[in-house]
Simulated scan of single mutants.
Amino acid sequence: MSPSLTTTPLAEFLTQENIESSPAWELIDGRVVQKPMPTLFHSRLQRNLMNYINEQTDRFEAIQELRCIIPPYSPVPDIVVIATERLSNEDGPFNGSPDWLIEIRSPDQSTLDLQNKILHCLRHGTQLAWLIDGNSQQIWVWEGESLPRIFSGTDLLPDCGLGLELTVERIVAMTRQKS
């Protein structure tokens, strides 16, 4: 599969072979786009943040690289956090927007493209979104329909009321933890 220059309908995209290959393919604005291969920084942060969230709550589940169906998009956020009562035992993509999504910007990813994906999810029910930029050691945060706020250093990050007490410094430190 190669990146699409023409508009692809969601139903057609979902029938394509290899959309779940690594790294996954997404449908954003009618364009078929493959996610970049994660770096060590990205992979450690994704694993450690997901594990930390799951250790702190039973009300939500953090899941990495889960395909969401939010017509006409099919994003695969780095981490989705979804209320457990919204999850089913059926295999396959998640139909709907996650309650909270977390994107970790890779060096070759466009911030504008990531923001576009985040805004689509927010328009369709996502309550909280983080865009983590390791290079600048900042996290852009959207809550509901509010404009994004930029957090850094010891700023306490919003977390859907879970009381995780995560700061940007603590998130950045997760990139150095082996597990």
Results as ranks from 00 to 15, higher is better:
residue 1 M to A: 09
residue 2 S to C: 04
residue 10 L to H: 08
residue 10 L to D: 09
residue 13 F to W: 06
residue 15 T to C: 10
residue 16 Q to F: 07
residue 19 I to D: 13
residue 28 I to P: 00
residue 31 R to C: 13
residue 33 V to H: 07
residue 33 V to I: 15
residue 35 K to I: 11
residue 36 P to M: 11
residue 38 P to A: 13
residue 38 P to K: 08
residue 42 H to L: 02
residue 45 L to N: 03
residue 48 N to L: 12
residue 50 M to S: 15
residue 57 T to K: 02
residue 60 F to M: 14
residue 62 A to H: 10
residue 67 R to K: 14
residue 69 I to C: 04
residue 70 I to Q: 04
residue 70 I to H: 03
residue 73 Y to S: 13
residue 74 S to C: 07
residue 76 V to N: 02
residue 79 I to R: 01
residue 87 L to G: 14
residue 88 S to F: 04
residue 92 G to D: 09
residue 93 P to M: 09
residue 93 P to K: 06
residue 95 N to C: 08
residue 101 L to A: 13
residue 104 I to A: 03
residue 105 R to A: 01
residue 105 R to L: 06
residue 107 P to N: 13
residue 112 L to D: 10
residue 116 N to A: 13
residue 117 K to I: 06
residue 120 H to M: 04
residue 120 H to N: 12
residue 121 C to E: 13
residue 123 R to P: 02
residue 124 H to C: 01
residue 131 L to N: 06
residue 132 I to T: 05
residue 132 I to D: 00
residue 132 I to F: 01
residue 133 D to F: 00
residue 134 G to E: 01
residue 136 S to H: 06
residue 137 Q to K: 15
residue 138 Q to A: 09
residue 141 V to A: 01
residue 142 W to Q: 03
residue 157 L to P: 03
residue 157 L to V: 08
residue 161 G to Q: 15
residue 170 R to H: 14
residue 172 V to N: 03
residue 173 A to Q: 02
residue 175 T to C: 09
residue 176 R to N: 09
residue 177 Q to M: 11
residue 179 S to M: 03
